[in-house]
Amino acid sequence: MFHYTIKRLLMLIPVLLGMTLIVFAIIHAIPGNPALTILGTKATPEAIHSLNRSLGLDNPWYVQYFSYLKGILTGNLGTSIQTNSPIASEIWPHLAATIELSFVAMIFAVFVGINAGIISAWKQNSFLDYTAMILALIGVSMPVFWLGLLEQWGFSIKLQWLPSIGRDDIRNSVDPITNLYLIDTLLRGRLDQFWMVLRHLILPAIALATIPTAIIARMTRSSMLEVLKSDYIRTAKAKGQRMIWIVYKYALKNAFIPILTVIGLQTGLLLGGAILTETIFGWPGVGLYIYNAIQYRDYPVIQSGILVIAFIFVMVNFIVDLLYGLFDPRIKYR
């Protein structure tokens, strides 16, 4: 297990290097000049030239790439062209916002999705099964931005139950420590703020969770249907075990590998920053951060942002790979 982990970690290096190269290439293939964006369309050629030089943009691409790579290795993600401050420190609050939102969304998706899938499979072809699967179909097909707007209209404007925008209340803003507000408010002992942060999380988290919930529910259902037909489930029944216990203990552990895979992929996707959800709910996450950078042609920010997202995606899948062995003893790591 230990050797396998080390081996897998070493194998991540070429993957990550490839990622930096691809990101670098794509960004530079996009037409448009950052210097022009910064200085405006009326800038003189001399001004553009001197800005290009000071930003290092007049160097050949491989020089730019290696200086970028050297920066990453020393923990320096570069400097934002737009704000002139280091990206490494600038990106964390955004990343934390996305992590917090994704985490809450995934807890919702896993809990609801797995249970819906289990009940569907257990009571196959029943009213419950059909209802859950129709809802899942709607869930995967519904555009997130539309669902987000509906939520805001219903729960914020009409019912006025929940806030519609942002991570916290501007008049009562959270004093960040880790930038994960749920943790920060607890660290500062501000339960009132904890509740306020939680209320801000609910609507965007549900909007973000719909697609993963539906996908997890469908995967759970099909995987459980297969398992529930197997001989060892019959054996468990023949022992006199209760059905609910058989389903949740025996069957679920067997059915969990494909579900875990889907959970991993979806977590990776959510952490990548859900631009639509973050835009609608004014959530200052990493998706919104990169989106703004793209509009501004802030190359370093785009590069580093995408790199961080890709890194998280790779790591989540790496963790999922390691978790497989927990659920199925037949999986051996060598």
Partner: peptide, 8 residues
């Protein structure tokens, strides 16, 4: 071969 639960 299949009557015992493989993951317990």
């Amino acid at each position: 071969m299949t009557s015992l639960n493989p993951v317990f």
